[in-house]
């Protein structure tokens, strides 16, 4: 086969493949991004599962290890704010479990 024709075919074929592989946006007025899925696991301990499954309803878990280390009273104030101010669906027993867990695992350094 003539090399020129082969080349043309190859180019055409790759262009079609390239076009097919592209995400065809239905219209050019849409702009989108995909947020990365970033996982943070909390420290092992009693109450971790509750903290992981309930806190994540409203925010990622990295909010917890980011904090500089608070007393139990400070953690209680934070958890109660989530419940009373933002309406986090956490019952009293779970709240106590979570507060104890946070104070124990992410408590003040002293």
């Amino acid at each position: 086969m003539n090399m020129k024709i082969l080349l043309i075919f190859t180019v055409l074929f790759s262009s079609v493949l390239f076009a097919l592989s592209q995400d065809r946006t239905p219209n050019a007025t849409v702009r989108s991004i995909h947020l990365p899925d970033i996982r943070t696991d909390l420290k092992p301990g009693e109450g971790r599962e509750k903290a992981e499954s309930l806190c994540v309803i409203c925010h990622s878990l990295d909010y917890i290890p980011m904090q500089p280390g608070f007393s139990k009273a400070q953690w209680a104030a934070i958890v109660n704010k989530m419940i009373k101010v933002f309406g986090a669906p956490i019952n009293e027993a779970d709240a106590n479990l979570i507060i104890n867990y946070l104070a124990e695992k992410y408590g003040s350094k002293e």
Binding site: I33, D37, R39, T40, D41, P65, Q67, P68
Partner: peptide, 18 residues
């Protein structure tokens, strides 16, 4: 492969879209 999990409050660098 659920991505990294990081305990520490140390700095993590990450590239978000754009």
């Amino acid at each position: 492969d659920l991505g990294p999990d990081v305990f520490a409050a140390q700095k993590r660098m990450f590239q978000f879209p754009e």
